[in-house]
Computed example of a mutant assay.
Amino acid sequence: MEIANPTALTAIAQPPMRTAKFAIGQVVKHRLYPFRGVIFDVDPVFANTEEWLASIPENLRPRRDQPFYHLLAENAQTTYVAYVSEQNLLADDSGKPVSHPQVPHFFKELKRGQYVSRDRTLH
């Protein structure tokens, strides 16, 4: 296939890419709700379902154009996986470990408040 004007391809507008504020292995807490967790994956922009987004009250609904973080999360009652926008996270500097049972699957140890990733084979 021949492209008549190869430079025309660069004119396609790309969404702005933002650098994630938080890192995999970092312990964070929610800015509004009483839970914390360790980040195990990051989406550069919203990558969940429309139903998930619509289930959040409109006045609290996060913007789509920001990083979203997958957390092994915990609160006073239970552990779970959470999907949280960057605007709703704060660093957790408590130094306390996260008690989620899947932490050892993703991380080797907690070192100076940051979890060290386990070497994993990707499929």
Rank of each mutant, 00 (worst) to 15 (best):
E51V: 00
V84C: 13
L72Y: 07
A76L: 02
S55Q: 10
H70K: 02
E50Y: 04
E58N: 03
T78K: 13
H70A: 01
V81C: 12
E51G: 00
V81A: 13
E51C: 00
R64A: 09
N75Q: 06
E58C: 01
E58K: 11
W52G: 10
T79I: 09
W52A: 15
I56F: 03
Q66T: 06
T79C: 11
A73V: 10
S55H: 09
I56D: 05
S55E: 06
R63I: 10
Q66K: 04
D65E: 14
L60I: 06
F68W: 15
P62F: 14
I56Y: 02
A73C: 02
L71W: 00
S85C: 11
L72Q: 06
H70E: 01
P62R: 09
V84I: 15
V81D: 07
L71I: 09
E50G: 11
V84S: 14
E58T: 13
R63L: 15
Y69P: 09
E86C: 00
Q77Y: 14
E50M: 10
T78N: 12
Q87A: 14
Y69Q: 05
Q87C: 05
Y80P: 00
E86W: 00
L72A: 03
N59G: 01
N75M: 12
Q77H: 14
E74C: 09
L72E: 05
R63W: 12
T78Y: 08
W52L: 15
E58Y: 00
L60H: 13
P57Y: 02
Y69E: 07
N75H: 07
V81S: 10
A54D: 11
Q87V: 01
P67G: 08
S55R: 05
F68Q: 08
P57D: 03
P62C: 11
P62G: 12
E58M: 06
R64Q: 08
V84A: 11
A73N: 12
F68R: 06
E86D: 14
T78S: 14
A54I: 00
L60Y: 12
D65W: 04
L71P: 08
L53T: 07
F68M: 08
E51T: 11
E51R: 02
Q77F: 14
N75F: 04
L60V: 10
Q77M: 11
H70P: 00
Q87G: 04
Y83F: 07
A82L: 08
T78Q: 15
E51H: 05
S85L: 00
E50H: 08
R63G: 13
E50L: 09
Y83C: 01
I56L: 12
E86A: 06
E51L: 06
A54C: 01
E58P: 03
P62M: 12
S55F: 07
E50T: 12
R63K: 15
E86F: 03
A54T: 05
